[in-house]
């Protein structure tokens, strides 16, 4: 596995992001924009489901899912770029692995929440899933931001 991570790190993309003047900074800026877009929509919809904000019907909010996916794609691509720059190190950082796990869980629980809402909006499961979903996404933001502090380069 380590050889594979090294190969990623020494790919053209990995070298560019790591060694060019603006590669890493630009990927980070895109990653912040994608985060604001995707997590912004996810939090808003979950706040609506939990009743924190009530003005817009839940199903009307789903019009924003396309935009959330766009933010997710921006973050997938910029995330791959950032990862490739230090693949052999990030791959072994517990905080990075935790972040990816929280992202996967957050995505799954967004789907579980919406599926449960569509089948029966008032059932308890909806809000329980929604709380888990919010926690996972906030956790992903926090562990992502903390990578700069726990990254033992």
């Amino acid at each position: 596995m380590f050889d594979l991570f090294l190969a990623v790190e020494n790919s053209a993309l990995g070298i560019y992001i790591r060694e060019s003047a603006w590669g890493f900074a630009m990927a980070l800026a895109l990653h912040a924009i994608g985060m604001a877009t995707s997590v912004g929509v996810v939090l808003l919809i979950n706040f609506r489901i939990l009743g924190v904000v009530k003005q817009v019907p839940v199903m009307a909010h789903t019009a924003l899912f396309g935009t959330a996916w766009l933010g997710f794609v921006i973050n997938f691509l910029s995330g791959v770029a950032l990862y490739s720059s230090h693949a052999s190190k990030y791959s072994y950082e517990w905080i990075f692995i935790l972040k990816l796990s929280l992202l996967a869980l957050g995505g799954l629980f967004m789907k579980f929440t919406m599926d449960a809402y569509r089948s029966k909006p008032e059932q308890f499961k909806v809000k329980a899933f929604s709380v888990i979903c919010i926690s996972c996404w906030l956790g992903a933001v926090i562990t992502g931001r903390l990578m700069a502090y726990f990254y033992s380069a």
Partner: peptide, 9 residues
């Protein structure tokens, strides 16, 4: 930032 962006979008 995320809380600001959802309703802004």
């Amino acid at each position: 930032l995320c809380l600001l962006f959802g309703p802004l979008l």
